[in-house]
Design a protein around this nucleic acid. Structure first.
Lengths: 343, 343
DNA sequence: CTGAAAGCGCTTACAG
DNA sequence: CTGAAAGCGCTTACAG
């Protein structure tokens, strides 16, 4: 049985401090016109009463909640755990808070948006695909900016922050070619998203440019998870007993899954028997058993670009469109591609 | 430049539907006394206007936000990613939302609580330690239940949901003993929390009971992370060139870090040269390279117990204290401890 | 700089 | 079942 807690309001504080309720409100708002002395009196009284302003009430008048919604599609990929952590830190610094939605089988992006609309959030960050134009409209009508993270959806009118995925794919292709690879496999991620497709396109285009025949490039779906990477590698080996020279995991976690099966179940050595590369540069891929060569996604810059586009501080001003441009990633050389062959 | 979005309120819907504003409010509240026909009219009008009730406004009157705060101490341990995912799913089912705080260097639990107090959350879930009694008081005064997850703090008056950690530690000790181990190392986690200490205590007690001398049990701090596990294993090897018979990682992620160094840098085989066990049963520990023997934390049951103690549905009723009892975990046999020796 | 008062968008007794 | 009205706890012109 919880006792009926008596709520302390700004009126109680005003009474104790001997000022008006307006003064209490002003005391808690930085930059408002109030005498330093009055503010002190109020703050003292508030301290004595353990008073904390009710942001629900203030949101109602200001139409700002200081809450940003973040919709997470896939926590099975540690990349997004790092993303969440980074957003948490940066939002913290801006004095904003995160309302987090983790998508499940029966809840899609649109449902999540419908659920967050009532909360009058100041913005929404989307790390999952499949957003409908209608939902972008719902947000837009309410003045809620939405920005996609690590993806974009053409013609939705929502910003899409991402790194230069095609360029990254090309860099991996070049590294493989330089190391002498001539046959290839790709393990692809979410077929509905732009990210996997863009990386694959860059990769394949560069290979074709180098004169590699299309028939020397196979592709397997890995569903963006470790387990998917495992299954894709098995499918690949079932398909053809001799592995390709090089495997491009469209993200690190799938590359890691593939490496594990290839080494443990098929006794293959990386990179001696088969080269591997990933994409993202998650810390997990840098660990001892993997030392994965990959393309680093500039998470910090991507997060900051996202926040810029959300334009939290000054919602009525226009936004710097340049933040919507792809950000360059760069190749991180580790041990899963041998150094270039000088022939 | 975002256009000044015109807010649609219940009054607009009422006007269109030709009913009172109260009727609109009732139409959206399940179980309220309203004619089915009236509700339909309202819902139709709402649909036409893309109206969604403003929960900020309703929270102000009802004093319920339907938001639960969850404070995450350590996303470097994947266990907590899984915990977050589980809470997300269960809270979803209860139509509640999560305000997530990720703790950083310069933000501690108490700061996070101070930040969430203004939001009138319906409850707070804490997966980090170091909560002050004063903060529990602040929450209590406001009628906000707080429950600790995977830890407890004696005498704070906050519930602490956890699995039976001492029993888990004992089970690991028994498995090691049965497999013939006679010298031991522990890699411990957060020294300020109860969880690591409880597991260690159960482990050591069981060993001592079996006549193992205290001098045969060494302990290394691993800071609850993969990297910490790596460092602890290195420290162990530096300390004594011959490894112990068995290593107990107080959690899986540290055990995984230790396994990786031991095998890759020291060429040791697991379990032939050194046995290893963890605690938590994170999916990552079940992967091919590890196949880690561990104690499963019953996350689903722990999450449900937490939600029970939060008592979201009926905040004025009393809570089932039994949910505060430790929940049994069980040993998951995999490949890092050989089967019992029959001598 | 300060206070009285209207208003933010709902919910919920109250009366009918 | 329905509507008019007070109230939730703030913010912010407005007047002084």
């Amino acid at each position: 049985m919880r006792e009926g807690s008596i709520r302390t309001t700004s009126f109680d504080v005003a009474a104790l401090a001997g000022v008006s309720q307006s003064a209490v409100s002003r005391a808690f708002k930085p930059g408002s016109s109030i005498a330093a002395e009055t503010r002190e009196k109020v703050l003292d009284a508030a301290r004595k009463l353990n008073y904390v302003p009710n942001s629900i009430a203030s949101s109602l008048t200001t139409h700002r909640s200081n809450i940003v919604a973040i919709i997470l599609g896939d926590l099975n990929n540690p990349f997004y755990t790092h993303v969440l952590q980074t957003f948490g830190r940066e939002l913290q610094a801006l004095n904003r808070h995160m309302l987090v939605f983790t998508l499940t089988e029966d809840m899609h992006t649109d449902d999540a948006i419908m659920q967050l609309l009532p909360y009058q959030v100041d913005g929404v960050i989307l790390t999952s695909a499949q957003l409908s134009t209608r939902m972008v409209g719902m947000c837009h009508d309410r003045g809620i900016p939405v920005v996609l993270f690590n993806r974009y959806i053409p013609n939705t009118g929502a910003f899409g922050v991402r790194c230069d995925n095609p360029a990254g794919g090309r860099q991996i292709a070049e590294a493989f070619l330089a190391a002498g690879a001539r046959t290839f496999a790709m393990i692809t991620g979410d077929p509905k998203g732009t990210t996997s497709a863009d990386r694959a396109t860059g990769f394949v285009d560069r290979l074709l440019d180098a004169g590699i025949p299309r028939s020397a490039i196979n592709s397997y779906e890995g569903g963006s998870s470790y387990e998917g990477g495992v299954e894709a590698a098995k499918a690949m080996m079932a398909n053809d007993a001799t592995p390709p020279d090089a495997i491009f995991g469209i993200n690190d976690i799938m590359a890691m899954g593939a490496m594990d099966v290839l080494r443990i179940e098929y006794g293959l050595r990386v990179p001696e028997d088969v080269m591997v590369a990933g994409f993202d540069d998650i810390p997990e891929g840098a660990r001892l058993p993997y030392r994965l060569t990959t393309v680093r996604q500039p998470i910090n810059r991507m997060v900051r670009a996202t926040l810029d586009l959300l334009n939290l501080e000054n919602p009525d001003s226009s936004v710097d469109i340049a933040s919507d441009l792809p950000i360059g990633g760069h190749l991180v050389w580790r041990n899963t591609i041998p150094p270039a062959k000088s022939e």
